[in-house]
């Protein structure tokens, strides 16, 4: 029953988020601020994770494919497919659910307990729309760029490790990257990314917006937001894969 209550309240919350804004001209600036806050400031962690993720995938694939009849370029092919299909869109989105999601829940939750959301409501401002919609739009716009950068850096990480350690010849790695490439895999990854961006921002904002109490509850909302958005991302990942790839 509790989960049904949350689902119902989440969709009611979304109806307010997408309700009519008071001054839509103000939203453009807010979206740009949020792009900086949620996207640009996440670039460092995304880049670092991606380079090492690509390197590790390459080493693990190479060390597990040692049969003579399997061509070495399969290492590059496997690294590319793993990165594009799953690691960049899903793992990076899970990382962002932790970083960005907890940030949103804490920020909105603090505004709630410090009565700043009540202040907006009393002024006649649609607080859900004013506070949350720019975050949702910003994440849906900037996350695909982050994921594309992540894909590039992961593949670059794999190439670097192949060049430095010789676990696979760089030429074989590059041949594998180009072998049997289907551009739809990138489209699929970007569709997933946009859906995950929506999930991260809206679920985190939902938990922050409905915070009651004080600092302790803000912390709890932040944790719950990360847990819930991660679970929803995993479920959505399964459903989208079933829908788009099968």
């Amino acid at each position: 029953m509790n989960i049904l209550y949350h689902i119902g309240r989440y969709f009611e919350f979304l109806s307010h988020v997408f309700g009519r804004p008071e001054r839509s001209s103000l939203y453009g600036r807010r979206v740009l601020e949020e792009i900086d806050q949620l996207g640009v400031k996440s670039l460092g962690i995304v880049a670092l994770l991606s380079v090492f993720m690509g390197a590790v995938i390459t080493i693990q694939t190479a060390s597990n494919i040692d049969a003579a009849w399997i061509p070495r370029y399969v290492v590059g092919f496997t690294a590319r497919q793993s990165v594009i299909l799953e690691f960049s869109p899903t793992i990076i989105s899970l990382i962002l659910a932790g970083k960005v999601g907890s940030n949103i829940a804490a920020e909105v939750g603090t505004m709630r307990v410090k009565e700043q959301i009540d202040a907006l409501d009393i002024m006649g401002v649609n607080s859900a729309s004013y506070l949350i919609l720019p975050k949702v739009i910003a994440a849906m716009l900037i996350n695909p760029f982050l994921i594309v950068i992540s894909m590039f850096l992961s593949i670059f990480g794999g190439w670097t490790v192949s060049a430095l350690t010789g676990v696979v010849a760089p030429n074989d790695y590059i041949q594998g990257l180009q072998w049997d490439f289907d551009p739809f895999t990138v489209t699929y990854a970007l569709i997933k990314t946009v859906v995950f961006a929506f999930v991260i921002t809206s679920v985190a904002a939902y938990h922050g917006y409905h915070t009651k109490g004080g600092a302790l509850e803000v912390g709890r909302s932040s944790t719950t937001a990360v847990v819930f958005s991660s679970v929803v991302i995993l479920i959505a990942n399964y459903l989208l894969t079933q829908l788009l790839l099968i």
Binding site: M111, K114, E115, A119
Partner: peptide
């Protein structure tokens, strides 16, 4: 409205 906590936007 003036709130107990002032509720200024941080």
């Amino acid at each position: 409205m003036l709130f107990q906590s002032s509720a200024l936007f941080d």
